[in-house]
Design a protein around this nucleic acid. Structure first.
Lengths: 345, 345
DNA sequence: TGTTAGCACTCTCATCCTGAGAGTGCTAAA
DNA sequence: TTTAGCACTCTCAGGATGAGAGTGCTAACA
């Protein structure tokens, strides 16, 4: 299995099989290959190469005397070595970039747009998480008394993210004192993270301590939850792939896409935490049984030190990797720019 | 068509046909009905009643000599007159209520939970929009200078909703003056809506006018966008219905569910703006061609004067209306309570 | 030695046929 | 008014069949 390196001709055959299978979704035979790509060799030769590729584990036969289908190993080799550099056509890029520039400055809007663009370009399902600050850093606190002991706490984070929370104090406190406390905490804690705020806590009076601890807690919670809200789009794309014509498989695919927790886990684990580069996960890479028949093309976007998020596409292993990779790369780039702009503003 | 009122026996037959069809998903014939429900009359009699119901438009035959299937009119009659009052079992209610009490106080969390519960209970797809204040009323403004002319505007609305926006002023303004302006606007505009704020605008200085107009604009925008973010769940449920076994129909269903704009339009138009009561939309009611084969069970939740949102389920016309209605009613009640609590806090 | 033509064989898949099963409407009798 | 009986219709699952695509092997060829 996969001992010797492939000869050039074997690589050609493998590439053609992958290409043809992705396009036609049915096992590809030697004759069809020679015909459609007018190869210089005969079908018998191709057959021999195919047999050899099958033996080394790059191809597989669904049944005796059907054509060949790439194995996961075959796809991996293809993506790693045979898939040339791909890029979106300049016209597409302009179109997409234009859409992004037209969008309002709402983060959610960007996320939705990214998901929609990815789905349209890759023709499979897309996943995008909202960008989240790497390290949640406190910037400013406001306390707004409403009535009685109810107080609205508004917490502004570095990067412009805002959290609010209602809280019930143990006694009624006047607006002036609330304001003073808020100012005090803002003054001594601005620029600190959860631990930093907790450390400062002892410097305040009873009320201040109570609030500061709450602030620290909120910061911590924001840290833990390491992925923003997950947006999806293009689910219907996946369903229209012929391998999911069978309604059982289709339902399965959809269940997978609906399973937030699994997707979040995969995104979190599969993806290196640094920005840059597109990662391709084929067939779950052995780690996720549920993803056996699926592949993902993922990227982190944003900028370390600022905020990062994840985006990518998910489809059957038989998906157009070229299209997906170029789309993911380009959209990730756009989103990164947006994040940086938002932070530097 | 639907001239005379139905006799009691016709109602019984109609009810049984609907019930049986919902359960078995295949056209129901006279013999099967008599057998399974041990009716006191013979199949021939049932046949006659069926023929009469078919003539008046409550039933229809997919083809000569197949069983009968309810028409939209049949479903409507069933829901309006024959479907007894249904309610979730007390045990289910307890379970659901428990889940809601365990959830954190994050609105998004509630929305997600509601969607998940609705999907599980109704066994079809669920739709839930986040609650949105009826009339966007200003409560408090903060201006936070960052660097240069960039200022972060934090806008707290009645009900605790928070909007933030970066803005670039025409000149650099000190933090003190920013604070003064914010306080001034807060003092004279608290409790007003977009128009009210605009009316006050002239009372301020140049900076104040600039900001106040922005505030009014933001309030207006919040008003316009009359539906919160739409959450869905249980898409896979719909796909597992036998009528969508055909992959084309399944894809169609999914496309429908993915089409945010259509759903939002339907939710906005189909639903009376007042809270209370569950509405059943069967087969698009002639107004939406795309919904021909689907039904929706919808309700508004929240409280007028506070905030309201929409929730409901969407499935094939052949869905369990009893189950859906009771689930929607109960969850809408829970969500309404949560909204009121959040506002009164 | 690598390549190719030829051939016998295998396996799938669309199509057709057929009979069982379910359902209907009509008629005539109770 | 209800029901038993009957002839008729339509679908659907299951089996048969043949075309088509593909394979591996062998022997000849450059």
């Amino acid at each position: 299995m996969s001992g010797e390196p492939l000869t050039e001709r074997q690589e050609t055959v493998l590439a053609l099989v992958v290409h043809e299978y992705i396009e036609r979704a049915s096992p590809v035979g030697s004759k069809r290959l020679v015909d459609r790509y007018s190869l210089a060799v005969s079908s018998a030769t191709v057959r021999n190469e195919m047999a050899s590729l099958t033996e080394s584990g790059y191809l597989r036969q669904p049944h005796t005397s059907a054509g060949r289908v790439p194995t996961e190993q075959g796809y991996r080799y293809f993506v790693a070595r045979l898939l040339g550099d791909t890029d979106l056509p300049a016209s597409e890029k302009r179109l997409i970039s234009h859409q992004f520039h037209q969008a309002t400055s709402d983060v959610d809007e960007w996320v939705r747009l990214a998901a929609s663009v990815l789905a349209a370009q890759s023709r499979v399902a897309s996943l995008v998480t909202a960008p989240l600050p790497d390290r949640t850093v406190f910037k400013l606190l406001e306390l707004i008394g409403t009535q009685g002991r109810q107080v609205l706490m508004v917490l502004v984070l570095e990067g412009g993210d805002v959290r609010q929370q209602m809280l019930t104090l143990s006694e009624v406190i006047g607006q002036t004192q609330l304001r003073q406390t808020a100012e005090q905490i803002t003054a001594s804690c601005a620029g600190l993270d959860a631990n930093g705020v907790k450390a400062q806590s002892s410097r305040f009076d009873v009320l201040g301590r109570e609030i500061a601890d709450l602030v620290a807690e909120t910061l911590e919670r924001a840290d833990e939850f390491s992925g923003g809200e997950l947006h999806r789009d293009g689910l219907a794309n996946v369903l229209s792939q012929p391998e999911f014509a069978d309604s059982d498989r289709g339902r399965n695919a959809l269940k997978l896409l609906e399973e937030r927790s699994l997707l979040e886990e995969v995104l979190a684990k599969a993806l290196s935490p640094t920005v840059g580069g597109v990662q391709v996960v084929i067939g779950g890479e052995g780690a996720w049984e549920e993803l056996r028949d699926y592949s993902m093309v993922l990227a982190r976007y944003g900028a370390t030190g600022y905020a990062t998020g994840t985006l990518g596409v998910l489809g059957p292993t038989r998906m157009s990797y070229g299209r997906s990779i170029s789309a993911v790369r380009y959209v990730a780039g756009l989103m990164s720019n947006l994040v940086v702009e938002a932070f530097d503003a």
